[in-house]
Design a binder for these strands. Structure first.
Lengths: 149, 149
DNA sequence: CAATATGGACAGGCCATCTGACTACATGTC
DNA sequence: GACATGTAGTCAGATGGCCTGTCCATATTG
């Protein structure tokens, strides 16, 4: 008889969301390390996901990612030190700086998306045909609903 | 024209899993704080989720949660200091200690599950009828597949 | 111009994890 | 029963990823 307090009765939706997320993360960031990007960590995706091709300000990145300016500056600094982004003064505003992906930054971003798709495909193979598409669709609808509260 | 590097092209499955997880967490742990459990943090769910009614050892908890013994001991210590768990020597093994939920620990565990269900219901209300059940079912199947690799 | 808002930097702190080194106890083998 | 090895837990130290508070420089607006 299993006496577990939570999981025996019912797995929480939090557990069900977090488990695949963590497995995915391990594989994606492990894969990045294996492919020559060892210094990219999950938190850095907050930068990579939101950075505009024409460059973004730290404040904008912070707001889009839901982090403080200081936290975003910390992440950007690490990416800049490792050569994934460049930071240059914004010609349009003397206070601001523009963060841009370098060639290496674009490479890591593309690799990240590719690895993510690969792991997603592997997850899909563990479900019945078509179910991963359903899952992705539902998560997308939920994200749409949550992005605009 | 949106030039975002990742999200404009396609939201990664990681993003789609993490977004609802984070919204859920904010609400569940905010709710716990509001209901008199201000010192419970998301990491503590690793203890609450895996602890057995008859008591569990730190090592067992660590293994089930996928953490090191040291990390689990750190979490257990905080919960013990706040009165959510008791820690007593294991009569069956002089090296070991048994971690048990106190009455307050049971209360927090039940409240956690209840809040989780409430937020899940709120999420469900943002989707078409029945879709949340489908989503939960698919996540459950995926979790089953990932729990036994 | 003065007042206020904004972009960013600096300092300091906390939490949640890790690794490495260690002690105390348990167990299995001879 | 003694010894070798394995296991439960602790101590110490480090790191990453966030936070708040404070401050400076530059914009913007009345």
């Amino acid at each position: 008889m299993d006496e577990r307090t939570i999981s025996a009765t019912e797995r929480t939706i939090g557990y069900l969301l977090r488990l695949p997320y963590e497995r995915l993360s391990e594989r994606v960031y492990g894969g990045l390390a294996a492919q020559g990007f060892p210094d990219i960590r999950p938190a850095h995706s907050a930068v990579l996901r939101h950075i505009a091709g024409s460059g973004s300000r730290v404040s904008d990145l912070a707001e889009r990612a839901g982090l403080t300016k200081q936290s975003m500056a910390y992440l950007v600094e690490a990416l800049a030190a490792a050569g994934y982004v460049s930071v240059a003064p914004d010609p349009a505003d003397g206070r601001a700086k523009l963060v841009r992906l370098t060639r290496r930054g674009h490479a890591v971003s593309e690799t990240l998306v590719r690895l993510s798709r690969e792991v997603e495909a592997d997850f899909a193979a563990r479900l019945a045909p078509g179910q991963m598409a359903t899952l992705r669709g539902l998560l997308g609808e939920l994200a749409d609903a949550l992005e605009r509260p």
